[in-house]
Design a protein around this nucleic acid. Structure first.
Lengths: 175, 175
DNA sequence: GCAGGATATATCGGGTTGGAGGTATATTCG
DNA sequence: CGAATATACCTCCAACCCGATATATCCTGC
């Protein structure tokens, strides 16, 4: 969630409530971020020197705490966007959030580097898709639900790989 | 993670180390469950009466704590498989884990009910895919990475929907 | 004039997670 | 024989997350 906060505040000054709405919209309003998550997070980030707040008298309702990133906060976002650990598949949302803010790395070559890392990560033989050297097939699972899980996982990965290769080609022709 | 533990122990007696391996293999060995997560979890689950352990003298190495579900533990798994809250998209792994153990609900009609709930959930207009009544298109986003995020999200959903409809048809013809 | 909803922020408790570190035994290979 | 590796379990700690609960303001409709 830190990543989303950093991403949204990178070029805009927002208050907590607005942030909450935007984070919810980022992946659909299915599971909005809870107040008990957001406000303590903001406080932690402020203590850590990543953001500062400016109290603004209430115009619409209660007074707003306008939030903006400190230089350290901006640096933190850029570091995270470049951090190889951020793109693990196990937490899809993490990768999606990163993708949503990748434009903040404004050098196309750097953006391409992140995508290439993701590409490398996805094509690496992980044991869910490989049995040693042999790629697994859905037929290798006897249970239809395990088969489905495998089917969905591989189809998803294939879709993303296609997109990654196309986007990379576009970025590289641009550079 | 509780769900995975319950799922694996439903019809097999395992020790912690084995459980750790199986959970890691479930979604690829990318992010194996940490010891600091697993062992405290097992202890909590034992305290909660969901599982019991039986000490077995070491055959291969250190003595093993063989784990098995109590009747309450078995019931807990079945409850979770039926729980509508378990299939939120925000935590893909949660849904995948559930899918992997859906066979434990051995009535095809009940399995179908879970899939139908997921289907309903995915087709519900969420604001990531819809702008009010109008379905969003990739072209609605100016940033190529947001476009990509949207493309991948929709393609993934479409893939899963196709699979859900096929699997449901198969289950219903079977019943 | 007041009830209800949207705006806006906050705390508390309990559960969950991962990283770092520690202990001990059995096998395998040089 | 000794080192490395795999097996097997454990604890502490800091961070994190959510639900419940609380407070206060502004606007709209009745």
């Amino acid at each position: 969630m830190q990543l989303a906060v950093l991403g949204f505040l990178y070029d805009a000054q927002l208050h907590g409530y607005d942030l909450r709405r935007r984070i919810a919209a980022l992946t659909g309003h299915v599971r909005p971020i809870a107040d008990g998550t957001l406000y303590p997070l903001l406080k932690r980030m402020e203590t850590a020197g990543l953001l500062r707040r400016e109290l603004q008298p209430g115009q619409v309702a209660a007074p707003r705490h306008m939030l903006s990133l400190t230089p350290a906060g901006e640096q933190e976002l850029l570091n995270r966007l470049r951090d190889p650990d951020e793109l693990f598949i196990t937490d899809e949302n993490r990768w999606f959030t990163l993708l949503a803010f990748l434009r903040h790395l404004d050098d196309p070559a750097e953006q391409a580097a992140v995508l290439r890392r993701r590409l490398h990560f996805l094509t690496q033989p992980a044991s869910f898709f490989w049995d040693g050297d042999r790629p697994l097939r859905a037929a290798d699972f006897d249970d239809p639900f395990r088969q489905g899980l495998f089917t969905i996982a591989t189809a998803t990965t294939r879709t993303e790989l296609t997109w990654l290769r196309e986007t990379l080609a576009a970025l590289e022709s641009q550079a």
